[in-house]
């Protein structure tokens, strides 16, 4: 199944299968970060487990576990026969999720730099030059 780029969850969730962090935790943190960043508002209907699993190429049980964790934290609410909806998110929870996502990004950034044989300064220089070009 192709990713639905109009769906803020499917388009916004970035999963790194090579990161040491379990995929279900990446999903819960990703959804929390999307809510914190106002990309998902209370009442928004999340994709089904199957749709999420297919879009991320993961086991449906993993997607279900992520939803269960979010529901336990009161972030989403599942209504039988209707679907799963965004409920609310504590500010502190949101900040924590964003911090964890940033940490993930930093690790990925470091590993890509190693892969390309670049140091941090060289990479940042490249970004600055790119922005200057624009």
């Amino acid at each position: 199944m192709e990713r639905d780029n109009n769906d803020p969850v499917l388009a916004g969730l970035k999963i790194d299968h090579r990161s040491g962090r379990p995929v279900y935790a990446q999903i819960t943190e990703g959804i929390k970060a999307l809510i914190y960043g106002n990309r998902l508002k209370p009442g928004f209907q999340l994709p089904t487990v199957r749709a999420l699993a297919e879009a991320l190429d993961i086991n449906p049980n993993t997607a279900a576990r992520a939803y269960r964790e979010l529901e336990r934290d009161g972030v989403i609410n599942s209504r039988v026969g209707r679907g799963t909806f965004v409920e609310r998110l504590d500010k502190a929870e949101g900040e924590k999720a964003v911090e964890l996502r940033l940490k993930e990004l930093e690790l990925e950034f470091q590993s890509r730099c190693v892969e390309l044989g670049l140091n941090k300064a060289q990479f940042l220089d490249y970004i600055r030059k790119g922005q200057g070009g624009k």
Binding site: P22, Q45, N59, N61, T62, V80
Partner: peptide
């Protein structure tokens, strides 16, 4: 491999057990 990467013991997908999460969007 799936268990190590995703952090969950994988299971075959069973629609009835995930009924809460499978309702189509309105």
């Amino acid at each position: 491999y799936v268990f190590a990467v995703e952090g969950v013991v994988p299971e075959e997908y069973k629609e009835q057990e995930c009924a809460w999460f499978v309702a189509p969007r309105a």
